[in-house]
Structures are given as C-alpha cells and as structure tokens.
Design a protein around this nucleic acid. Structure first.
Length: 420
RNA sequence: GUGGAUGUAGCUCAAGCGGUUAGAGCGCCAGACUGUGGAUCUGGAGGCUGUGGGUUCAAGUCCCAUCAUCCACCCCA
C-alpha cells in the first residue's frame, strides 16, 4: 500500500504556496514597520514549559499535545502555540536587560492533536507578536492595530474585533466565586458540558453556544463588572487608545480565552464564512507569564494569527493576490543540433538574472510552443537553424504573437528593456 | 474523545433490483501540422472501485471492520 500523509496535515503545492509567500511578506513588512524583530524558537520544547506556561488544566495541554520521550527519557512536546517558547527564550537570554520594551514576532508551524475540521489541522501555522516589559494600555492598542492592519493590507473585509478584560487573578477569583454562586441553583438547566465546566473552568460557561445555557447566563455576572480599580482603569484607558487609533470594536463581556496565562485585556478577531472555527486571530495580556516560567516579573501582551484560517477567509471573499505571474522566457530549439545552442542561450539568460527554461528533448517546434504557452511565459526565444546562420535568434511575444529577429548579442538588453 | 456524511482515472462525476470487458467530460501524452502556441479532429496512456474480511454461482453495488476526507461537538488560531 502506498504511504499516505498522516491525518490532519497537508502539503502546500506551488500554486498555493505563492499565496503563503505573499502573506508571509506582508507579515514581515508590517512587523518591521512597527518595530518588531523576528525570533525563531525550536519546534519542540520540554513538556514542562507548556504545562507551566499554557496551563496544565487547559485542553491544549491536557489532551492535545504531541508528547514523546527522547532517548534519555525526558519528556518533549511539539509546540502547541508560540507564546510559551518566546517567553522561555526571553528568560533564557536575559532579555529583561535589553532596552524595554522588547518587541518580537514569530511565524511558523504549531501542533495540536485535535480532530481535523474546517479551519483546524494537526499541523497549522501561526504568526504572532509579543511585547515584553511594558504594561501600558497603549501597547495593547498597538498590537491590536497591527493585527487589524495585517488584515487590511491583505484586503480582507468583513472582520469584527471583540474585546474584553478578564482581569488580574484577584478580580478573576472574585468573579468566579460570584458566577458559581449565581449559577449553582440553576445547575439543572445547564447542558452536560456546562455542568462539567462549572467544576473545571467556570469561566468557560460564558462561552457556551447552547441556547438554554445562554438564556440562563444573560443576567449572570461577567468579568468586566468585577474588575479591580487597576484593571478597570487599564481597560478604560485601552478604549481611549483604540479611539485615538480610530479602531471600532465590540465589547463582548462573554469573551473568554482558552489559555490560562491571559490577564486583563483579551481580544479576538472573527470572520464569518470559514465554518465553525471563526476566530482568525486572537490575543491578550499575560502579565504573570514570565514570572510563572521562572523569569523576573515582566508584563507582556501579544496575539496569534491562524494563517490557514486567514487564507480561507481571503478565499471565501474571492480575494486573489497579485499574480506571481510566470514571468520569464522559454527557449525553443528548431532543427538538428540546435539543442546545444539553445542551452547556451538559456544559460546566458539565467546568468543575467532572467528566468529561463527550455525543452530538453528536442521535441517539435509546435510542441515546444505549446509548452511555452501552457507555462504562461511572456517571451519565447526561438533558436533555429535559419536564425543561427545569420547570427540571430527570433524573439516572440506570446500575448500578441509578434515576432522579430534580433542579433544574439542584443537579446538580453532587449528583454531587459521590455520587462519594464 | 463524541456524532453525521462521503470514499470509483490526475480532477469533476456515471454505472437499473447484485449480472459478462467499470464509462464520460476536463486534464495529460502524441498525431493530423518534419518552422510557429490558444481552435478543431483523431488516437494513446492512465483503475487491485481507499484497505481488509464476509455473504453470494456472481460484489463498484449488500454486511462488518479499518483507514482517510468533509462537516459539526468538545476545544481553539
């Protein structure tokens, strides 16, 4: 039996990859302009990093990690998200001694052992930014602005931004107590999942899609009403910053992020039309994460973008990218013994930096032209016995069918002039 | 981990109630057209019908299992 790819992963073929490369270019340009520098961390880390960083109780760590022992029995895991590793690197390289804030971005594959579905894969790709060492709401606003501008540059419409604050651990504990005591008398009306959430992670009750639960929760306490004065002031200041940046948003008091490390600000960008997994980018503040991972107390804020989901959203809207057209030249040889001559022409073009290809087998002229046509090249150079005898080659424009004969030495300057 | 749908050529799909050599369109290769692409016509290659069992004289078709894909739940980007 043929070997097939594992479940939930995919190949990216050239046609598609050109879209990826365009998106990656947008990421790099934008991050650069905003003053972020790229960091690359390993694909795997000690399992403990994610247990401590992401949280042992989260589904991601509890049941979705690719975890395996290395040859000495240490437990390693493929990274399920990007932030924990960046935090580890921040600590390990003493970045707190760098000029603050430290602004980093990353782009690369992540791994989660989930059941595949629209917009969800076992190996997927994220681009994200992290800012360390500045607790100002202005930074929260900056990363949100960067996130939105990313979609804007790509041309994606129909996105919505939702923001909220889950508060610091102190506010969160108060809120959780209030929520549990509010909902406990009505436990019977909750769905099975929510009865479970009540014990494991009461916050998630707010996120339930069951109409019955939503009904019970309309009047329930929300984190925003339990913020301590500091967290409340931060959230108010963030709203002002967003206003200054002309960013429109919805406050979603039921917005809940799935990772334990979030504190305060949280936000999510959604796009309808890519299926049930409609979050295409999300993030928030994590002011305790660096310390939790063994570093000095350092505030942080960042986001992650799902690249596959973003590309899906673009496709859903029929947004094409600037065609990475098959610019280039196809060299056709005609007649006995012209293959060698065609090789020299191809080589000269390539060494001049012009994309050039040819037929290797000396097939018929018609066939070679057909090849050139199908490749979509704009120019064909015909190296034929007749032209060679005059020291020339023929240059044919495939779009107009116009064909002229030029001296071989003029070929490259001529192509260069026309390329503009 | 749970539930539903679907697996036939590279792609999109046919094949009566189980019946003889599994077809078509598109694509691919070639020829018509030994010096000119997109059109037309002709021919060719390409299949263990996802895989493994079972029922039957006979299975693409019915049954079971398994794998994969899609969709949804859980969860998340």
């Amino acid at each position: 039996m043929r070997v097939k790819k594992p479940r939930g992963v995919f190949d990216i073929l050239p046609d598609k990859l050109e879209k990826w490369q365009h998106l990656e270019g947008v990421v790099r340009d934008l991050a650069h302009v905003y003053g972020y520098r790229e960091i690359r961390t390993p694909i795997f880390e000690f399992t403990e990093l994610f247990q401590r960083g992401v949280g042992e109780e989260t589904d991601i760590v509890a049941k979705e990690m690719y975890t395996f022992p290395d040859r000495r029995g240490r437990s390693l895991s493929l990274r399920p998200e990007g932030t924990a590793a960046v935090v580890r690197a921040f600590i390990e390289h003493n970045m707190h001694a760098w000029p603050q804030p430290v602004k980093l971005y990353y782009i690369g594959p992540m791994f989660r052992y989930d059941r595949p579905q629209a917009g969800r894969y076992r190996q997927f790709h994220q681009f994200g930014v992290e800012v360390f060492g500045c607790a100002e709401p202005a930074v929260d606003a900056e990363v949100i602005k960067l996130l939105l501008q990313f979609y804007e540059v790509l041309g994606l419409k129909g996105i919505s931004l939702e923001i909220s604050s889950v508060g610091c651990p102190k506010c969160r504990n108060e809120f959780t107590d209030a929520l549990v005591s509010y909902i406990r008398p009505q436990t019977a009306g909750l769905c099975k999942d929510c009865r479970n959430r009540l014990h494991r992670n009461p916050l998630r009750l707010l996120d339930c899609k069951e109409p019955g639960c939503r009904g019970l929760l309309t009047e329930a306490p929300v984190p925003l009403n339990y913020l301590c004065p500091v967290c409340a002031a931060h959230f108010a200041a963030l709203r002002n910053e967003l206003l200054a940046l002309n960013i429109s948003y919805n406050i979603n008091p039921h917005l809940v992020r799935g990772l334990d490390y979030y504190t305060g600000t949280s936000f999510e960008v959604m796009h309808a039309g890519i299926g049930a997994q409609n979050a295409i980018g999300a993030g928030g503040r994590y002011d305790n994460l660096v310390q939790t991972c063994g570093g000095p107390p350092t505030p942080g804020v960042g986001f992650a973008v799902g690249i596959e989901r973003t590309l899906m959203a673009l496709q859903d809207q029929g947004i094409g990218f600037p065609d990475a057209a098959q610019e280039g030249v196809f060299v056709v040889s005609v007649g006995e013994g012209t293959l060698r001559h065609a090789l020299r022409v191809v080589q000269a073009l390539r060494e001049a930096g012009i994309r050039a290809d040819r037929d290797y087998a000396g097939r018929g002229l018609k066939t070679q032209l057909k090849q050139a046509h199908r490749r979509g090249v704009k120019w064909v150079v015909i190296v034929g016995e007749e032209e060679i005898s005059r020291g020339n080659v023929a240059l044919r424009a495939m779009d107009t069918g116009e064909q002229i004969e030029v001296n071989e030495s003029e070929l490259i300057p001529r192509l260069r002039a026309w390329r503009a």
